[in-house]
Design a protein around this nucleic acid. Structure first.
Length: 297
DNA sequence: GCCCAGGTATAAA
DNA sequence: TTTATACATGGG
């Protein structure tokens, strides 16, 4: 690790992380492409990130911020070599996904922001999700020099539905209000959630209006670091049926082979890499078949 | 105008 | 328990 910009930036080498693969696999929403890198807002901070052969450059970032915040945020201590090896040995399609996105990492995001973000994500697309989250941050979050923090639950309790709707949340405004209401009333105590075991945590998340199977899975994965118990086959089925062979019963056996047990402690990672891979294929197909839309449903 | 988007609540079978 | 439909909104 070395410093630049008179100690206001940090260069990190040997992480194996690819910033583009990591930020653009659909797990986070508060980043923008900049000239040669990304501008990310997390933990009430603005971070500029660039990457070259030597490694990642983070700015502004002190050594202390790197150790206390960003090392964990970028999951730099995760053993991805082990995960990739394990997954690749199970299935050739998964191996292909791993080989295409070797630098894809999980981000350890803030639980409340992750919850709200994935509530917003339902029946929505990523550019619009990002826009909505940005509007909410501008309206309710703390103002800093040149950016806005994602609001706390307290900062959102003062909101009303029509105000939230003005951020284009649509029917999800009611869900966000339900969440902050449950936090305000003590039904949900964010600080206590991380102490729950995954099954209890899931149960708790499902009590929130607008939080179902998919949203709770994403929140457990990206906001609570639960990466073991994932219905990989369910996710793969959903996305494969949609993009590849809809209604083809012969695909069922194949998809069933993606059951979570098969990927052991790396089910979450298998899910994420496969999901990203399948969507990338679909998006390429879409590009190729711009005129004929038969690739989909 | 119609279809879609990292789904879920709701009613009805 | 499983299956249709509505839901807000903007882009293609």
């Amino acid at each position: 690790m070395e410093y630049f910009n008179e100690g206001h930036g940090i260069k990190v080498t040997g992480t194996g992380l690819d910033i583009s693969q990591t930020l653009e696999c659909g797990q986070c929403f508060r980043h923008e492409k900049t000239d040669g890198g990304y501008r990310l807002i997390a933990h009430s901070r603005l971070l500029n990130i660039t990457q070259d052969e030597e490694g990642l450059s983070l700015y502004p970032c002190t050594a202390e911020e790197f150790e206390t915040i960003w090392r964990n945020y970028f999951d730099l201590d995760g053993d991805y070599a082990a995960a990739q090896k394990f997954i690749s040995e199970r299935d050739s399609f998964a191996a292909e996904a791993v080989s295409l996105y070797p630098g894809l990492r999980f981000l350890n995001q803030e639980p409340f922001e992750t919850l709200v973000s994935f509530i917003i994500s339902q029946n929505n697309n990523i550019p619009r999700i990002k826009k909505i989250i940005g509007l909410i941050a501008e309206k309710y979050g703390g103002k800093r020099d040149g950016y806005c923090c994602f609001p706390t639950s307290d900062e959102l309790t003062s909101a009303d539905i029509s105000e939230l709707m003005a951020c284009n949340t649509g029917f999800r405004a009611r869900y966000i209000m339900d969440l902050v209401g449950k936090i305000a009333s003590g039904d949900i105590v964010m600080n206590e959630l991380s102490a729950l075991d995954s099954s209890e945590l899931k149960k708790k998340l499902l009590t929130i209006l607008g939080v179902g199977e998919k949203v709770s899975d994403c929140v457990m994965l990206f906001g609570f670091g639960r990466r073991e118990v994932f219905p990989v086959d369910t996710w793969v089925r959903q996305v494969m049926n949609k993009y590849f062979f809809p209604g083809n019963p012969q695909s069922d056996d194949y998809i069933r082979s993606f059951a979570a047990e098969r990927f052991g402690p790396y089910a979450g990672y298998a899910q994420q890499v496969l999901f990203h891979h399948i969507r990338s294929i679909a998006s390429n197909e879409a590009e190729i078949n711009k005129k004929s839309k038969h690739y989909i449903k």
